[in-house]
Design a protein around this nucleic acid. Structure first.
Lengths: 269, 269
DNA sequence: CTTGGTAGG
DNA sequence: CCTATCAAG
């Protein structure tokens, strides 16, 4: 069982042919061994998303998605080779959940697994946008506590927009007061992991900087590997014990950059 | 003395290299025999315009321009191989001219010639935008009457956004109620020509449809030559008598399309 | 279909 | 620097 997660930074741009060598997301989808793929920042409504992914759907992929409330913003989805047997939109427990309409949280069951695709707000230190990010963090943590109480194995994938430790951001010193590496955000992740979730990429690469999963388009950030590791798969411990490999597909991304993020791919035996 | 006029549809886009074969406006500028070039729809302020045209200025071209009041809209300019000895912005006679700030009218003297670069509003039938277009038409006609009373030879170049006769629009039947081919607009041009101005391209091509100078980007308008002749050079009669050639540079535009308009180029002996 | 502005990343 | 939106042409 292989699970991938990637922030596509606009599904319509991601599926576009960019050059003869770089034909975008669809060739990657054709060749990936993944069984489940979590997508974030589709920046499209359900109809536009299905249209962009039409070739994949024709190939038999199943699709679930959570529409953004604002056009051209957010949007998350899950692609699965096996049927999707349950979907839940929003981290909250009821329809008046403030985030249910934001296109930031989608949870599905497929086979024996529960998979969530989550897109955290960017935030902005010292502003209301950071307050909203923290409300979203609290809502997701509450839902993840519920998931732990369930019987099913679960993995929560996404763009968390938080670097956890100094290993996770190349320029961590310059970012100590920036949204994405604030002490409160880092502590929140530490606390979340203490409840029983496992950051499976970090467990397999405990001491190395990165592997980064996002590089700014600006300047030569990608060439210099001046990146951030902000895309995580958090698995419950029983599932995490089954991890056989966990990597960021940077090599592929190097040749074929159709997003500013790279896929984070984990094989569970 | 060769005068060209072209609506560049955004100077910053026009100077961009579009492909190995199509390097944009600058190579055309390198090879054109024109002595004076009127530009419309630069969609840039004076500083952005000078930056986009920096290679031409380094080659010795002189530049005058009229800033648009709204960012990214309108904007007219004149490039001249010889020095520009007088500049006037706006068709009106005083600073409270409503159009002086709109980046639609620039008049210069160079050598013995007065040259104006004018960008008429698009208009929209039955709306306030048409009323404004007609106010601009009246202001330009008034200024052109003044020009005729002057001693100097003068040519008023630009994107008039009006097709004069059925020869000037391929699909004239479908456009009889559309801004750009309204009876009032056509009559205004007829009246203007009756005051002593000469549409020099039409005089040299009296009976042929076109030659069109604008084609919509939509569909296959350009390939089908489904165009409009809306870019004119109007010369006073004495100057018009010196015309030796007048053409639309469609052949060049075919290979190298860096605007939806093509240059209208006239040689005066 | 293309331009430039703007918000957001 | 890239992805969207939008108004305008």
């Amino acid at each position: 069982m292989i699970v991938s997660t990637i922030n596509v930074n606009g599904i319509r741009a991601a599926v576009k042919e960019r050059s003869p060598e770089n034909q975008g997301l669809l060739p990657w989808l054709k060749t990936t061994p993944a069984d489940v793929i979590c997508l974030q920042e589709t920046r499209a409504d359900d109809e536009q998303l299905a249209e962009a992914l039409a070739p994949a759907l024709a190939d038999g992929w199943h699709l679930a998605s959570a529409d953004p409330h604002l056009k051209g913003r957010n949007g998350v989805a899950v692609l699965s080779r096996n049927p999707i047997t349950r979907t839940r939109i929003g981290p909250g427990s009821n329809a008046d959940d403030e985030f249910a309409s934001h296109g930031r949280y989608l949870e599905v069951d497929t086979g024996d697994l529960t998979v969530a695709s989550v897109y955290f707000p960017t935030g902005e230190a010292e502003t209301d946008r950071q307050v909203e990010k923290e409300r979203f963090m609290a809502a997701v943590a509450a839902r993840m506590a519920e998931l732990l109480r369930n019987r099913r194995d679960a993995v929560v994938c996404g763009d968390w927009n938080i670097g956890h430790t100094e290993l996770d951001i190349k320029a961590w010193k310059a970012n100590r007061k920036k949204a994405g590496f604030l002490p409160a955000e880092r502590a929140w992740l530490t606390d979340l992991l203490a409840t029983g979730w496992v950051d499976v990429v970090r467990v397999l690469h405990p001491d190395t900087p990165g592997p980064y999963s996002w590089w700014s388009w600006r300047g030569k950030a990608f060439d210099n590997d001046a990146g951030w590791r902000i895309d995580y798969q958090l698995a419950n411990r029983r599932l995490a014990d089954r991890v056989v490999s966990a990597r960021v597909e940077r090599a592929e991304a190097y040749a074929l950059r159709w997003s500013d993020h790279a896929p984070v791919t984990v094989e569970y035996c």
